[in-house]
Write a protein that binds this DNA or RNA. Structure first.
Lengths: 329, 329
DNA sequence: CTGAAAGCGCTTACAG
DNA sequence: CTGAAAGCGCTTACAG
């Protein structure tokens, strides 16, 4: 590959000047030499080595994203949004997949640290992720989910409890008196918020809640609900903590010959594009993925992520068919 | 961050020795000094700077993947498989998303070249991707789909035509006499193979094929099929070039009140995990994602990707409910 | 405005 | 077995 030295030679100047013109600074270059350098660079098809640049310059122009499962549609859409937001600033997004494994989450983070990414955006599989390697390296990080106060990092997310409250309230308004809460891992901060929101909506109305939990995969949710819904006294409605789980519920209903929403109403959570194409289309809470992506990058870039700042963005309850006819209108 | 120099100082030795012990070579180090270095490294929490290492060593221990849409389940599962296969060799997978845009595909590839990835695995949005930047940099590349002979690169994929033939034959055996082929972009190499395989299966049987095409997104497929299936003489079966398109068909059928498979039979293609959880479960061609991932990395690592080697791996026809009852058994 | 030189943090021949 | 030094390809004060 051709180097700055090659270009300098051909343009009859020094590598310093090559650097100045390629980067438009930080020093001025006379129009004449500038043109000669550009010309030489074009002829030799010069592409600066990003590694060398990063090593001396101290910035890699890259940000690392780590998600629990990149094959999950929600994280996929999130990655896409972040990639676009990063590209808008000339940055490259590196995507890491922790495979729901805390150990791999750790190793992915350290791989990013070793490569000196400028910042990290993290969706942890853990309530209290290990951020040590990042802080030690002085790499800003922002989490995309609520975290306990004990975690010394900033986060940005919707208000899960409020969103859960909104969705559950909608179910209550439909008049369902037995509702199942299909939650994530029992002890996660997110699960707690789903639980709180749902109870706040149902307790006042005297609606009973049956809480069950499953992994985030569709298959796991289907399995759990196959059991629950096979019972004659099965709940009339199911609130799900993720769309994926909701799809599992839809599958279980289909398998059991239960029609949605006539016999079982279902709501999801996340609101990816696919939620409009499920059978039937899914009532869900839409997370503003693009806003989250943009704000996340703004925070880490602006140094706002230092400390423990917990920012909240708006959500939207998207009412479709899976929760039942809109009798209340 | 602590550097090799810091460690060397504390261990009372040189950076060369630090390097030798950290990398277990290429020179031997006496057990005593080795222990001192390890000790110092531990105490200082030393992590070698991957940038510096790559710059001098010439390898970045990273491979770049570029896919048309990371939010697409098939590419998501592929990324996961590649990430695992890469990690097994201590390599990091960098995932790039071209967003179905040839321009962004180009820029993603050059971003990878600039960062000197050791190899690139590419699913192009183009029949004839521009591989110039890669070849110029001497970076091995392997494509994960069939390419015209004019493209000077190696590929690994299933035999699409054979797979199409198998799926379409299955449909013919069900006795359907009017079949729609929902294909991808009309002029793509992949589409051509779907077409060839389907026709080979149906022509002999005297079955008529109606070919339509849609983008790879679920929404686009749904739109196309909503039109086609609304007609009273709609086809009795639909062969889809991807699972995503099949989900769009399922949605369209649901919308139109057509039951699957009783009124419309459907087959997909790709066979991601979700295909088992659609309503009804989808008959589809399963691509051996893990085999593909492993072979792809073996090829680029072993230098086998040089030249134009086109390798084929086996597929599997997974028969589920969407294509109709198994009358032929 | 521009060139010679130091430095980023490693690795690896080159001498001992 | 180990140290001093050159080199990877950039960037950026430092002198002119």
């Amino acid at each position: 590959m051709t180097t700055a030295r090659d270009v300098a030679q051909r343009a009859g100047t020094s590598t310093a000047v090559v650097s100045y013109v390629v980067n438009n600074g930080p020093r001025n270059v006379s129009p004449a030499t500038r043109e000669r350098v550009l010309q030489a660079a074009r002829e030799l098809d010069y592409r600066p080595n990003a590694l060398a640049r990063a090593l001396s310059h101290g910035r890699t122009s890259s940000v690392g994203l780590v998600v629990p499962d990149i094959a999950n549609r929600f994280f996929g859409e999130l990655a896409r949004a972040l990639e676009e937001a990063a590209a808008a600033h000339g940055d490259l997004l590196l995507i890491g997949d922790s495979g729901l494994d805390p150990e791999r989450e750790r190793s992915t983070i350290t791989a990013f640290v070793d490569r000196r990414v400028d910042a990290v955006v993290l969706v942890s599989v853990h309530d209290t992720p290990d951020l040590e390697p990042l802080q030690q390296a002085g790499i800003p990080v922002v989490l995309l989910h609520p975290v306990p106060d004990s975690v010394p990092a900033s986060s940005i997310s919707i208000d899960y409890e409020e969103a859960a409250y909104a969705a559950a309230t909608h179910l209550v308004e439909h008049g369902y008196t037995s509702i199942a809460l299909l939650n994530g891992p029992a002890d996660a901060a997110g699960s707690r918020q789903h639980r709180n929101g749902v109870h706040r909506a149902t307790d006042a109305a005297g609606v009973a809640i049956t809480e069950v939990s499953s992994g985030i995969a569709r298959a796991q949710a289907a399995q759990v609900m196959l059991d629950l819904l096979a019972r004659p006294d099965h709940p009339r409605a199911v609130y799900c903590a993720t769309d994926e789980q909701a799809y599992g519920v839809l599958f279980a209903c289909h398998r059991l010959g239960l029609s949605v929403p006539e016999q079982v109403a279902v709501t999801g959570f996340d609101g990816t594009e696919h939620s409009a194409y499920s059978l039937p289309p899914l009532t869900t809470v839409r997370q503003p993925i693009h806003d989250i992506a943009r704000r996340a990058l703004d925070m880490v870039r602006g140094g706002e992520s230092a400390g423990s700042r917990h920012e909240t963005v708006g959500f939207e309850l998207v009412v479709r068919e899976s929760c039942g006819a809109h009798a209340e209108r």
